[in-house]
C-alpha cells in the first residue's frame, strides 16, 4: 500500500541524504556516530531472515540489502572523515556522549520479554524493533545539547521520522484490509514516532517557516 511504499522511500531518502552530503562535504558535524552504529546493528539483527533464504519478494530482499549496505557505508564515510577532517571528527566524538549500553541493554531485556517465539531469529527481530525505536536518541541528545543543527542533520532526522510516521497509517490499513496486526511493530513504532514528535514540531516552526534551527 501507498503508506508503506512512501515510508520505505523516505527511509531510503534519509540515508541517501546522509550518504551524499557526508561524501560530498567530508563533514560530520552534528551527526552522531553512535546513532549510525546502532542502525547497522538494527538492520543486521532485523534482516537475519535474509540468511534463511525464505525471501518474500525482490523488492523486500533488495531493500534489506540496500539498507544494510548503506548503513555500513555511512560508518565507513564517517571514519573516512577522521583522516580528512580530524578536527570536526574529534569534535563530533566529543559531543556524542550518550552511552550506547544504556540503550542496547534495556532493548535486549525487552526483546527477551516481548517476542512472538523464543528463537534466535525472533529474539533478534524483536531486539531490532526496540533498538530502532531508540536508536535516534544519541543524535537527538547531541542536538539538544548543542542547540544547533546543520540543515543536513535536520533533513535527515525529518526523513527518518517521516518514515516511521508513515508506517502508522500503513498498519491501520493492514489491520482493516488484511486483518493483520503486528503488535510489537506497532508499539515500538508509536514509541519511535513519539520520540520524534518534539523534533517535528521544532522542525516545522524553524525550518519550514524559515530561520535557523535552534532547540530551546
Amino acid at each position: 500500500n501507498i503508506f508503506r511504499i512512501l515510508g520505505d522511500l523516505s527511509h531510503l531518502a534519509s540515508i541517501v541524504i546522509l550518504l551524499r552530503t557526508v561524501q560530498k562535504t567530508q563533514r560530520v558535524d552534528g551527526i552522531s556516530l553512535k546513532t549510525q552504529i546502532l542502525y547497522v546493528l538494527v538492520f543486521c539483527t532485523r534482516y537475519l531472515d535474509l540468511l534463511t533464504f525464505r525471501w518474500k519478494s525482490v523488492y523486500n530482499t533488495l531493500m534489506k540489502m540496500v539498507f544494510i549496505g548503506a548503513s555500513v557505508r555511512v560508518i565507513q564515510l564517517i571514519q573516512g572523515c577522521k583522516i580528512q577532517n580530524p578536527v570536526a571528527y574529534k569534535d563530533m566524538i566529543f559531543r556524542d556522549t550518550l552511552q550506547i549500553k544504556y540503550l542496547v541493554g534495556p532493548c535486549a531485556v525487552l526483546a527477551l520479554i516481548f517476542n512472538y517465539k523464543f528463537t534466535l531469529l525472533e529474539l533478534c527481530w524483536s531486539f531490532s524493533l526496540w533498538l530502532e525505536s531508540v536508536a535516534i536518541l544519541p543524535q537527538l541528545f547531541m542536538l539538544s545539547r548543542s542547540g544547533k543543527a546543520s540543515t543536513l542533520t535536520t533533513h535527515y532526522i525529518f526523513a527518518l521520522g517521516l518514515y516511521r510516521a508513515l508506517y502508522i497509517p500503513n498498519w491501520i490499513w493492514r489491520y482493516y484490509s488484511e486483518d493483520r496486526l503486528e503488535k510489537l511493530s506497532v508499539f515500538t513504532g508509536l514509541l519511535q514516532t513519539a520520540l520524534y514528535s518534539d523534533f517535528f514540531y521544532i522542525y516545522y516552526k524553524k525550518v519550514v517557516k524559515g530561520a535557523g534551527f535552534e532547540l530551546p
Binding site: R4, R46, K56, Y116, E122, W125, Y167, D179, E182
Partner: peptide
C-alpha cells in the same frame, strides 16, 4: 486478528 510470524515489513 492474527499476529503473524512472517515479518514482511522493512
Amino acid at each position: 486478528t492474527s499476529t503473524p510470524l512472517e515479518h514482511d515489513e522493512l
